[in-house]
Structures are given as C-alpha cells and as structure tokens.
C-alpha cells in the first residue's frame, strides 16, 4: 500500500490508503478505487451504486468543472502534477474548495515534492503521495515554515492585511 501523507489542518501524518488507483486499461479490483475522469464519466453511476467509495483522478489538462455536479458523491479528487513545475492543479484545487465547496479529500499525485507543501496546503490539498521519499515530518516542517501569509487562499489562514487590522 503506497504511503499517503495526510494534512490534518495542523499537522501531517502517515495514513493507510484504502483506495486503489486504477488505470483505464486495468480491470477494476474490489473495494474503493481512484479512476480517471473518463472512466468515471462512463462507469461512475454503476460503481457508486455498488456502494463503494470512488475517487476521481483529474489530469492537469482536464477541467475540474466536469465534476461539479458529482462532487458530493466523490470521496477523493486526485489532482495530477505531471511535473512539479506544472502548476495547473493549484488552480483546480482552489476551485474545488472555494468555488464548488468540495469537502472530500483533495489529493496531490504525480511529481509531488515536499518543497511544495506550503503551496499545496494553502490551495486546499489535504493528502499527498510524495514522489521524493518524504514523509509526514518533512511535510509538517515545510508547511510550518512561514508564520504569516499575504493572501487569502483555500486554507483558513488569515492574510497579513487582516492580521494588521487586529
């Protein structure tokens, strides 16, 4: 079972991952699965009716808007970083949290590096599949680096301009 780092809102912890990530050409195993957006659109209704939990993997070039109406039924949205430099998933995460009010898990998958912990958490990610061998201690360390932030994002941190008003 792959390592999953979860952000609790104050700390990072190691978690067991009950989900199996499934490629489009693989047969579905039993239990909770994370499938592609394409597969979800084709087979989602059926799978949900079987009573299992479903996660949807959204590639960087896919629009999260496509999931808007299904979000209440989806347990995980896994946003893909094809390279750590590809920052599209940051916008996708903020849209999920702030525009669509999604409360399930937003998971970072792909080229996921600890150095990006701060940005990811701020955009609303709460679970990570690190690609650099890092663990929860590393993620907690990076997440706690900055005592203040300048702008409002998808987390609950108070931006500087409001802190200043006391």
């Amino acid at each position: 079972m792959p390592t999953l780092v979860k952000w609790t809102g104050a700390d990072a912890e190691l978690a067991e991952d009950p989900f199996t990530a499934v490629d489009d050409d693989q047969t579905l195993p039993r239990g909770d699965v994370i499938i592609s957006l394409t597969r979800f659109q084709a087979e989602g209704e059926q799978l949900l009716s079987e009573g299992r939990k479903i996660g949807v993997r959204v590639e960087a070039d896919e629009a999260v808007e496509a999931l808007a109406y299904d979000l209440p039924r989806i347990a995980v949205v896994a946003l893909v970083f094809p390279k750590f430099r590809d920052g599209r998933a940051y916008s996708a995460a903020r849209l999920l949290r702030q525009r669509f009010g999604y409360e399930g898990q937003v998971r970072a998958v792909g080229d996921v590096l600890r150095e990006q912990a701060h940005f990811m958490i701020r955009c609303g990610f709460d679970a990570f599949e690190p690609a650099d061998g890092s663990g929860p201690t590393d993620w907690a360390h990076v997440a706690a680096r900055f005592r203040h932030v300048y702008q409002r994002a998808a987390d609950d941190r108070t931006p500087a301009f409001l802190e200043r008003q006391g």
Binding site: F84, R85, D86, G87, Y90, S91, R94, H118, F119, M120, R122, C123, F146, V149, Y150, Q151, A153, A160, F161
Partner: peptide, 13 residues
Amino acid sequence: RQWSTFHPEFSFL
C-alpha cells in the same frame, strides 16, 4: 508585491 509574494496558486505558472 504583497499579494504576489509566495502566491500559492501562481508560483508555477
């Protein structure tokens, strides 16, 4: 300057 410093969404454009 303040808004764009370490902007979480726009640091990997």
